[in-house]
Design a protein around this nucleic acid. Structure first.
Lengths: 151, 151
DNA sequence: ACGGGGAAGTTCAAATTTGAACCACACCCC
DNA sequence: GGGGTGTGGTTCAAATTTGAACTTCCCCGT
């Protein structure tokens, strides 16, 4: 077995910063969203993706992929959102097995109501903290990371 | 109420990349760690922090802060690690309420055994994907983000 | 000394997540 | 046209996470 190629101090610091910033930021977002809109971050992301999709709907599997959750996790959350009236399921014409998650009018209203506060947090704690160069580096660098991991 | 200051395309892309890269990378890490070492990412982080601390031990609250979990979540995980013999609890001399989580010898062995594989994943999917400039930007920029959020 | 405000950890029930097993169907190739 | 293989979604039980409540105890000011 080859010698392990350890991380040097800068690499370690970068990885640590990435990990910690992600966790802390997510904690803030979760808290803010729950308080002001009664949604979890995941639920909010689901609504966002549906809101941006053609016809406000997406297949379950595709939705699970874009919000990065497991299929069973998405099944659960969509069921919750359905109970809350923000999303409904509709079957797929071309594929009997297929299911669409569809954003309801009420869902879109909730999304629009939640968005400003959410964006405010992301801006205050991430976007406005980074310099333009750093923002660009995050976009390009992490974009590539995500792409290679199959995002 | 003031007009919402929305994110422009670059800001949106950066935020999206950050979120997605984090989720996908974490998924990989979780999978790798579970397969090769039988540890969750959180458990691994706990061992790392203890391993790096003076005397291989840390107070519960401080440990919870550095690994970014809730106190109750840490209580649970330390209990699991204790059952596995990787960590033990020890009471604190100066503060009767205080509890130290201490890395056992077995815990250190497991940590050392798990580290190479873990580092390999972090390197392959994150560190080696970023250019030196991007790495520096992530370190500085996200480091600042974490710092401000109380990391 | 003494009371109040906090901090440290744990506990508990409820909510969520995980991953494997499963059903039904689509697709492809001989 | 009949398997064999793979995909889409759901289900299920077990594991984990969450947040609030609770118990103890520290620390500070009076």
């Amino acid at each position: 077995m080859p010698e392990t190629h350890w991380l040097n101090d800068d690499e370690m610091a970068a990885w640590q910063a990435f990990l910690t910033a992600g966790a802390l930021l997510n904690r803030r977002i979760e808290e803010q969203l729950k308080d002001e809109s009664g949604l979890s971050h995941l639920q909010y992301e689901v609504l966002v993706r549906l809101g941006a999709a053609e016809g406000g709907r997406l297949r379950m599997t595709e939705l699970a992929a874009v919000v990065v959750t497991s299929k069973s996790g998405l099944t659960y959350q969509v069921t919750q959102l359905e109970k809350a009236g923000l999303v409904r399921r509709s079957s797929c014409r071309d594929d009997v097995r297929g299911v669409y998650a569809v954003l309801t009018d009420e869902g879109r209203r909730r999304l629009e109501a939640a968005a400003p506060g959410h964006v405010g947090v992301v801006r205050a704690h991430l976007v406005d903290v980074l310099t333009p160069d750093q923002l660009a580096a995050v976009k390009e660098g992490l974009g590539e990371v995500a792409r290679r991991l199959g995002g």
